[in-house]
Design a binder for these strands. Structure first.
Lengths: 123, 123
DNA sequence: ACGCTTGTATGCCTTGACCAGACAAATTGT
DNA sequence: ACAATTTGTCTGGTCAAGGCATACAAGCGT
């Protein structure tokens, strides 16, 4: 059993990144704990209706970030990963992305209260 | 004079969208007010070191969203645009993106306090 | 040892970003 | 009025990346 992943083909950003993002979110929030087994690339691919290479690309990304350990014949193992010390430039980059997303949401008419609610829901 | 736009070629998402996002942020925050003239597509393109078509694509996007009025021989005029009533599905979509971005930031090691600070800075 | 499962590598096609340059409409100068 | 200039738009072309089908390699179970 893994995190239920939802794919939006009209999203604009690639499917493999959507998968990586959502699985990462599940791992960071500890909804899936270290030691657990994720779905195999083919399982998840079949579930999502995409090619297994697409899922494999997402898994490789997470493995490169230190979240997963991939092994042939075994599958994807969730590692215990402590948060790194990000450089200030990296933090600034996230700050920019956050500002832009909030601006886009407000431009779309999403009320500020709704945004706050979602934020508090995460932290 | 327009909003100072910064392009990140390694960002992964297309330049025209980066431009659109940043200009939109400037418009939503009212740092550029309705009635003002934006830089022409060629001016901004020269400034950023990209092709004028790239900027034009970004401007077209904003025009389609109702932010700008484009006219040949004139330029880009900032319109007065009231926030639409977004459907619940749209709000949910933004909520998802927001959660994912925050998860990614936390995964990168950005402290929660820094995130809160940036958020408050916008609202 | 054999077959099955699992991640990986290769090759191909399609899509989209970006660009160069030509075109069309509106303004400006004379 | 006319012509030149300015401005957004359109067309065609190149290239990188996403996604897929298929074949390969490594580990596990019987």
């Amino acid at each position: 059993m893994t995190a239920t992943v939802r794919i939006d083909l009209d999203s604009g950003d690639p499917v493999w990144r959507q998968i990586a993002d959502q699985v990462r979110a599940a791992l960071v929030s500890r909804r899936v704990k270290p030691g657990a087994q994720l779905a195999t690339v083919r399982e998840l691919a079949l579930d999502l209706g995409v090619n297994h290479n697409t899922v494999a690309e997402a898994y490789r990304q997470l493995a490169a970030e230190g979240f997963l350990q991939l092994e042939r014949g075994v599958g994807a193992l969730v590692l215990d990963r402590e948060a790194p010390r990000p450089p200030a430039a990296e933090q600034e980059r996230f700050a920019r992305r956050l500002k832009l997303l909030l601006a886009e949401a407000r431009a779309a008419g999403v009320p500020v209260a709704a945004l706050r609610k979602t934020i508090e829901e995460v932290l």
